[in-house]
């Protein structure tokens, strides 16, 4: 490729090349939709199971055990997926790093909020939705994907709705908000990546 050495770019071509490289980085994060969707579905299934167990007459303490089961399924599934996926650019991409840091921040804030909610005897769900909304919103900005930004806003609306609704309904609000504000943008993102590869 001797001619590439000599190939001088004009300003338009230079700008295009830079933008294409940045898009490549973003697409690599978008391609990692499995983790995003896995945790979304786990939360929806756990929320609905929790609600169902309560309607069956189980005590809240017992019905809440589904939240313990969720990471027992989710963590190994995530680890097995990462182990076998064998991503070549795993930690190199700066967008991946920022994205990972946003969700790491979410995990820490979530842990603190859950402890706080239990200690203060308030419903943790509005707090979870506020934090998930913020992380989804930031992810949307980082990946320049408007459906995720809108998804973050949907999650915040879900959090606000909880103010006016009884505790026992909060899990249903959570399930609905996660489907609309998190899973739908996640699937749209996947569809866009597939289209880009087609």
């Amino acid at each position: 490729m001797a001619d590439q050495e000599e190939r001088k770019l004009n300003p338009e071509e230079s700008l295009r090349l830079i933008r294409e490289t940045i898009d490549l980085a973003k697409n690599r994060v978008r391609e990692n939709g499995f983790q995003f969707l896995l945790w979304g579905w786990l939360v929806v299934i756990a929320s609905l199971t929790n609600y169902w167990l309560v309607t069956l007459g189980f005590a809240y303490g017992k019905a809440n055990l589904v939240w313990m089961v969720m990471p027992v399924i989710g963590v190994p599934a995530s680890l097995i997926y990462e182990r076998f996926k064998g991503r070549r650019y795993r930690d190199n991409n700066i967008v991946s790093k920022w994205y990972g840091l946003v969700w790491l921040g979410f995990a820490v804030a979530l842990g603190l909020s859950l402890v706080l909610a239990v200690r203060m005897n308030v419903s943790p769900i509005p707090l979870i939705l506020i934090l998930a909304g913020f992380s989804t919103y930031l992810s949307g900005i980082l990946l320049r994907f408007n459906a995720l930004i809108a998804g973050g806003i949907v999650l915040w609306i879900g959090a606000a709705a909880c103010i006016y609704l009884p505790w026992e309904i909060h899990v249903l609000v959570q399930a609905g908000a996660i489907v609309l504000g998190y899973l739908v943008p996640g699937y749209l993102m996947n569809a866009q990546v597939r289209k880009a590869h087609a």
């Binding site: 770019l9 090349l17 190199n92």
Partner: peptide, 27 residues
Amino acid sequence: LDPLLLSQLRLAIMSFLMVTREAGFNE
């Protein structure tokens, strides 16, 4: 504009490194 970066290959290297921070030769 910086003439060193107005080359296709050099700009490709630099912009890739801007998003990956570091990269192997083969990458």
